[in-house]
């Protein structure tokens, strides 16, 4: 337990978390600090490219094994099933109606790529290796939860809410294309490709992540200010309990798959995190009646900060305990 607190304290004073805290503080005191939209977009493109490329290089270096296919399958199954647990938990803990509860549940089955990137950054700082293909697992976990959420709303007759345009937007959204595309480039070019561009994607990575998390702090803080009145205590409790529940499911899957300590942390982080990029956009199209203040505030204003500050160190400690350090 002392190790968990030590790791949590160490994580809290990292530049990454403190940058997020600065953004959060600036938003809560209503500072005019802002990151221009185009800059934030460029930072996110950089981070997705870097993380995808590194994952591809790692797979090229270590080779493809059965773990890749099984991890992808586990990711898809978790993404599809976690919304049902989230839906039940939220309905028990709060008075949020069925439609909004289903919309929230979809977010928790899907993943937050920024939380994933933050977890990889913690692994790098600790010198812990992870399976490179976890990037592909992250991409595979984006979409299935959306279908589960729509099924929860319409009890199995969701056809009228999904059209081909929405399918294309979900499966080929910019984040997934960039992540998978850079993963393939990294896999195709291998360690030689990494040597060519490491000055661009390795050394500046943590600094860029700091700036991106500064922006995320601003967004989260403004989301909290805007949306806190729509959430009761039960919903806020859900925003903390659900990532822990999801991480335990991810932990179980990681044990069954025999993942390394790093891989276990990443799978736990993926199953603990909630989407605030791909799923909200899909929900605005498929469930326009659902209130975006509820699902965005929960995923971005409650669960994301929780995972960043407390969740990741906790998951890492569990992963280390299970894998013997």
């Amino acid at each position: 337990m002392a190790d968990i607190f030590a790791l949590a304290a160490q994580n809290l004073i990292s530049p990454v978390v403190l940058s997020f805290a600065l953004g959060l503080f600036a938003a809560l005191v209503r500072s005019d600090l802002s990151v221009p939209e185009a800059v934030a977009k460029a930072l996110s493109i950089y981070l997705l490219f870097a993380i995808g490329f590194k994952g591809g290089v790692s797979v090229a270096d270590h080779g493809i094994d059965a773990g890749l296919g099984l991890s992808l399958l586990a990711g898809v199954i978790m993404s599809a099933l976690i919304p049902f647990i989230a839906f039940g938990l939220l309905r028990v803990l709060s008075s949020i109606d069925r439609l909004n509860a289903a919309a929230v549940a979809g977010h928790y089955g899907s993943i937050s790529i920024v939380t994933f990137v933050a977890a990889t950054s913690v692994l790098e700082s600790q010198g812990i290796a992870a399976e490179g293909y976890m990037v592909a697992v992250a991409a595979a976990m984006e979409a299935p939860a959306i279908l589960s959420a729509l099924w929860l709303v319409s009890r199995g007759s969701n056809g009228h809410r999904m059209d081909s345009t929405l399918w294309r937007e979900i499966l080929l959204n910019g984040s997934i294309v960039l992540l998978v595309g850079s993963f393939i480039i990294g896999f195709a070019t291998g360690p030689e490709g990494m040597e060519d561009i490491s000055g661009f994607i390795v050394a500046p990575f943590t600094g860029v992540l700091c700036l991106f998390l500064l922006d995320m702090g601003l967004v989260a803080g403004r989301g909290m200010q805007k949306g806190h009145h729509v959430l009761g205590m039960g919903a806020i409790l859900f925003g903390v309990l659900m990532p822990v529940t999801g991480s335990i499911i991810g932990f179980g899957c990681a044990l069954l798959l025999g993942l390394s300590t790093g891989g276990t942390l990443l799978l736990m982080t993926l199953s603990a995190s909630a989407s605030y990029i791909a799923v909200p956009a899909a929900m605005r199209v498929a469930l326009p009646e659902a209130n975006p203040s509820i699902y965005l505030t929960l995923s971005l204003g409650v669960t994301f900060p929780f995972n960043l500050v407390a969740g990741i160190p906790l998951y890492l400690a569990l992963a280390q305990a299970a894998n013997g350090g």
């Binding site: 802002s34 939209e37 934030a40 605030y276 909200p280 605005r284 975006p292 203040s293």
Partner: peptide
């Protein structure tokens, strides 16, 4: 409610 173009990390809002 209020919304602004700045600080949007998804197209949702």
């Amino acid at each position: 409610g209020k919304w602004a173009r700045a600080g949007q990390i998804s197209r949702a809002e």
